[in-house]
């Protein structure tokens, strides 16, 4: 029993960056932009979150963990959104191919993150890390009364604040798509931009905003990696593939934000499984599990394609008002 609780606990912690990446990409794809740059934007968020926290520490007289965390979240959101802005400008305004632009964003984002990470390390004397106060802000919360509950405390009330932020974003997004006019408009843009356009919806604005906010959310996921997973230390190539799994997860959860929580939990679990469920197979083979699972998900979802759970129709295609 204990080991199951530990596994779920670890799965939540490992799945959170995936959740952010998935949510960001769902929002992006709902606008009809298939942004394959999630990995790049997560990298950008990872380095900028750390950088923002370090920057705050350098200007603050006495470091407050809460403020450092706010700096990290906002910094990563903005830099992730900047990556998405480049993508939007190229694909929406300049009509470049979405696939290639997304791949380029991944190459650029990975490059610039490792680049800036190393520069930061050089500036800090060979090793980029935040102070223990900031580390504390990203540590697991201890909610009086709740965290100490048996079983439930560890399963539900013992995570760092970013985990809860992710769940809140997922639920807000679910409400936004289902219950708000703006959300409905956005879905219309993703399904059929020409129809949305003729209904007076500003397609360009919607695409830009959804993609940039989506990129920002991906950025926060990257920040989670650099602030929580690596404990506030810059590690070369730290995101390494999480962004790509997130892109696949979007398909797995059928573009449903609330389901994203479950998807991220499952894949988080698969990635830590080897530490909790020894099967007697070599570690490196065990490492394959999330990737193999992703492949299986891709195949299964493609075989049982349904109209309900499919990608927004215009995804991957640019909208040219003059050429409709």
């Amino acid at each position: 029993m204990d080991s199951v609780i530990n596994l779920v606990n670890a799965a939540v912690l490992a799945g959170t960056p995936l959740l952010f990446g998935t949510l960001g990409e769902i929002l992006t794809e709902k606008s009809g932009n298939l942004n394959l740059g999630v990995e790049g934007m997560m990298f950008m968020g990872a380095v900028s979150g750390l950088w923002a926290a370090v920057f705050y520490e350098s200007i603050a007289a006495t470091v407050s963990g809460v403020l450092a965390a706010i700096f990290a979240v906002i910094g990563s959101f903005l830099f992730g959104a900047l990556g998405a802005l480049i993508y939007s400008f190229l694909t929406v305004t300049l009509r470049a191919n979405q696939n290639v632009t997304g791949l380029t964003l991944t190459i650029f984002g990975t490059g610039i993150a490792n680049f800036l990470g190393e520069i930061l390390a050089q500036n800090m004397g060979g090793y980029a890390r935040v102070t223990t106060v900031t580390q504390g802000a990203f540590a697991n919360l201890n909610i009086p009364g709740l965290s100490d509950l048996p079983v439930v405390g560890k399963l539900l009330f013992s995570y760092n604040f970013v985990v809860y932020l992710g769940i809140v974003i997922a639920l807000v997004m679910w409400w936004f798509f289902k219950k708000t006019r703006v959300g409905l408009n956005l879905r219309a843009v993703g399904e059929s931009p020409a129809t949305a356009d003729s209904a007076g919806i500003n397609v360009t604005l919607y695409k830009y905003l959804a993609t940039c906010i989506g990129g920002g959310i991906c950025g926060i996921g990257g920040m989670y990696v650099s602030m929580v997973t690596t404990n506030g230390v810059w590690v070369y190539n730290c995101v390494s593939g999480l962004g790509w799994i997130a892109v696949a997860l979007v398909i797995f959860v059928a573009w449903k934000p609330a389901l994203g929580i479950l998807g991220a939990l499952v894949f988080g679990g698969l990635s830590v499984l080897r530490m909790y469920v020894p099967l007697g197979i070599p570690m490196e083979i065990y490492e394959m599990v999330p990737y193999v699972a992703t492949v299986i998900v891709l195949i299964v979802t493609s075989i049982r394609q349904s109209k309900e759970n499919s990608q927004p129709k215009s995804c991957g295609l640019n909208y040219f008002r003059e050429e409709r």
Binding site: I86, L105, F108, G109, G111, I112, N114, F115, E118
Partner: peptide
Amino acid sequence: SAANVLIGIILF
């Protein structure tokens, strides 16, 4: 890593 940054910028 500057190489990848530069490659990314050129391609953009």
